[in-house]
Amino acid sequence: MASLKDLRSRIASVKSTRKITSAMKMVAASKLRRAQDAAEAARPYAERMGTMLGRLATAVGSNEGAPKLLAGTGKDNVHLLVVFTADRGLCGGFNASIVKATRLKAKALAAEGKTVKLICVGRKGADALKREFGDNIVARYTGIEGKKGIDFSSASEVGDKVLALYDEGEFDVCTIFYNKFVSAISQVATAQQLIPFVGEEAAEQEEAAGTSAVYDYEPSEEAILADLLPRNVGVQIFGAMLESSASEHGARMSAMDNATRNAGDMIDRLSIQYNRSRQAQITNELIEIISGAEAL
């Protein structure tokens, strides 16, 4: 049985933990708002880029001269996985779920006899994956999210790296793994193929329905595609970063909310235990005094 002093200090320590978690929750909530706004503001660009590319891709089709980013290298021996995680922990299953999805995919690819290469964005992912796939990590980026949120330039930095590797023939297929933001309490680990480009279904449906007009291209379809496809890589990575950061803050907010609530429950339980044992001690002392008085 814990002594009264022990109980008191435990209650005090749980109380200070609760203070920290509730402060973290509030910080996450305000960051989430900003991240969510940024993610929503970036969506129109990515969407329009997607439909435009889809249209172009169907126009160019699988011509001989189609850019490599669209047609692929014709092989799929080497896969590059770009993994987006947070730099910090304490955000529930956020990092774990993305790492798990990556690990499953990497194992499946390895079992098929394919080579896997990894780019880790965010420290936690690199830390979790380096034991198993340490030799496969070709690049890692940390500190993506600055004071003012995520900058497009950091996304282009990662995008340039991916494109440079592709140009050197270092990989054939590139897939990005990130947490898609659904709501503050729900994030979905998503895998999206980046290279070769996969057209959006919307554009294809439009095409099938024959509603899309015939476009003039200036300069040529191929030239525009060659210009747009590399840009699209950066845009998709930027989008993934924003989604991932919104998800991170959402996950941290709900994790910290749970932690705060648990701490509250624990304080209640400990207080009851503390009061009971204090009362027991008082009763004990009284009994001793009374029985002592009676014995006289």
Binding site: M52, Y215, D216, Y217, E218, P219, I224, D227
Partner: peptide, 12 residues
């Protein structure tokens, strides 16, 4: 220049 009812085109 783009005026209303411009014919569809895509340009860099």
């Amino acid at each position: 220049g783009v005026l209303p009812k411009h014919s569809p085109m895509i340009s860099t």
